[in-house]
Design a protein around this nucleic acid. Structure first.
Lengths: 336, 336
DNA sequence: CTGAAAGCGCTTACAG
DNA sequence: CTGAAAGCGCTTACAG
């Protein structure tokens, strides 16, 4: 473990002052050409690398932006993270992630990931969905530049990047109705998850418009995971309700649902149509490929990063508006 | 943007010296109980939070460990990252990720993610697979504690956590052979990827053992992505070669392959058996559920973090050995 | 038990 | 154009 070379070292080697070394290293104007060359050469030769920690302490900027995420391993979030990295690239900023999910026992741990990041003096915070309260996020916004993605926070509208879940859900439900389906089941996300609530609302809205009565026997609670799609279908089947189509709360739920249906010998889409929400990249490869609503995760992540960059340079974040899009593949068909 | 309170502030408020404040904040012994109480109360009241940057500068430890990863959005890597977070939890250390993948144009950028991390003075580095050269990693190991996961580096064996790809591949190929298959196709990973090479070797090994001649017409190059599974099958079909089973280089490749086969009206596993490698969590939910080789990503990530922690505390890393496991589901069946 | 001082590696006015 | 000095927020010997 060799000690990294410092500016002090370089100064000693080249015979100029540390100030001058610092200046040439920072591409600062006004340094004699010969000294500049000297320093640059020495830096190169000794593999000098600036200590970002020290630099951060004096400049007050760590050049890293914190990202709070529920679960890295969820395809949708993973894609947003990719987008964030893309958006930050070339900016000199880097992202640092902090997650919670898998330790959801301790409720006041909800703030723990925020603190790790804040303590490390990140220059800004991008929050992906998550269960921190609106109030907490509002307070945070007083302390540090913040952008929120895949979630809407009252009072922070100009910092939120999200799609309209009600609209997306009603669009895909309408699509099923247009295919002739009347008995449409729905497996929701977590009971209190805002997205889950909005999607349920969109589903009901579309039914209402079409004059189809809402039947609570047709909806079961899920959790946005594959497992819950599987269980959801089992529940529906146990209840003995008839349905010709199923709107799963998200794509992962749809995967589980399709498996359960197949194992009960229902053919998709001939016997029952299945649709999801999100359009995770895998959904183009399921059997059959999944009809779903696209929520542009990568683009949203990139936009979050870009808005953050704008915020950090003192400008208006200008968060863009994202539209959902109906992606028609093979998992839903005309009712007969 | 309110300025965070500092130790200096706390000293002024409580009337003790900064040294004393620092001591009580660090749970240091030997401080009068009354002063301790005073400081603690003030810290609480003013929401004091230590500046990890300053602390890092003096202690020389940033309490963050860098993780270099090819692609966060790949399920296998995402799971390793989850494992790393789990392993670091409670240790006070945090991870910072840096990836490259999606900018694979510039070859000498390969080292860029290492530099961002090194410049920020991470205390250790966990490298997940990746294309940095063995030599580069060996050099790195001289500078900083390093653990390498999902890859083997010569000379750094005691720092590598990986499974035996040859063994895994030969195991699953043997399984197919045991089912009666003789014409087994294989879609590899990237041409030069060590894992891809090892899996191909394992495949050939098993064939050889069984006295089945290796037929290069049966193997096509893939890239470990869904898309390449799809294309791989198309190629095989175009070649007009007969095969009753297909060993995909990894699970994602298998997904694409299954889709292609299905769209050509092959039933899985009745007409052709398909197996993968990795056992990503989704593989339990495909149609049919995928028979595959499990590479315990989360556990490996956790082990990497734990070994790193050991290394940082001056102990032997004690990297554990991981075994692959054959996971039998529904995508492969007896040949007839 | 406690404070003054030095120092971590850098940047940035301030003089010259 | 260039160096000496101060300072970022903390920790840690060093005296007392």
């Amino acid at each position: 473990m060799t000690k990294p070379v410092t500016i002090e070292d370089l100064a000693r080697i080249t015979g100029v002052s540390p100030s001058t070394v610092s200046r040439v290293l920072n591409g600062n104007k006004g340094v004699a050409a010969d000294k500049r060359a000297l320093v640059l050469e020495a830096a190169e030769k000794h593999h000098y690398r600036p200590n970002a920690v020290a630099r951060g302490l004096v400049s007050g900027r760590s050049m890293t932006i914190g990202v709070v995420v529920q679960d890295i391993a969820t395809p949708f979030f993973a894609n947003m993270l990719v987008g964030i990295e893309q958006g930050l690239d070339q900016s000199g900023y880097r992202s640092m992630f902090a997650s919670t999910l898998w330790r959801d026992n301790d409720p006041n741990d909800d703030h723990e990931p925020f603190h790790v990041l804040l303590d490390r003096r990140v220059d800004g915070l991008i929050v992906l969905a998550g269960q921190a309260s609106d109030q907490f996020l509002r307070d945070l916004a007083e302390q540090i530049p913040i952008i929120i993605a895949a979630r809407k926070v009252e009072g922070l509208e100009d910092r939120c990047i999200s799609i309209d879940n009600v609209e997306g859900a009603s669009t895909i439900t309408r699509y099923l109705i247009g295919l002739g389906h009347k008995r449409i089941a729905h497996i929701t996300g977590h009971r209190n998850h805002p997205d889950a609530l909005d999607r349920l609302r969109g589903y009901r809205l579309a039914l209402e418009e079409a004059g189809i009565e809402y039947d609570e026997e047709l909806v079961v609670e899920g959790s946005f995971h594959e497992e819950s799609g599987l269980k959801g279908v089992e529940q529906l089947l146990t209840r003995g309700v008839r349905f010709s189509a199923l709107f799963a709360g998200n794509d992962q739920t749809a995967y589980g649902a399709m498996l359960a249906l197949a194992s009960h010998n229902f053919r998709i889409p001939n016997d029952v149509s299945v649709v999801g929400f999100d359009d995770v990249s895998l959904s183009a490869y399921t059997l059959p490929p999944l009809t779903t609503i696209r929520q542009p995760a990568v683009a949203m992540g990139r936009a979050a990063a870009e808005s953050m960059l704008r915020l950090l340079s003192g400008n208006d974040p200008e968060v863009p508006h994202f539209q959902t899009e109906l992606i028609i593949r093979k998992s839903a068909a005309i009712y007969h």
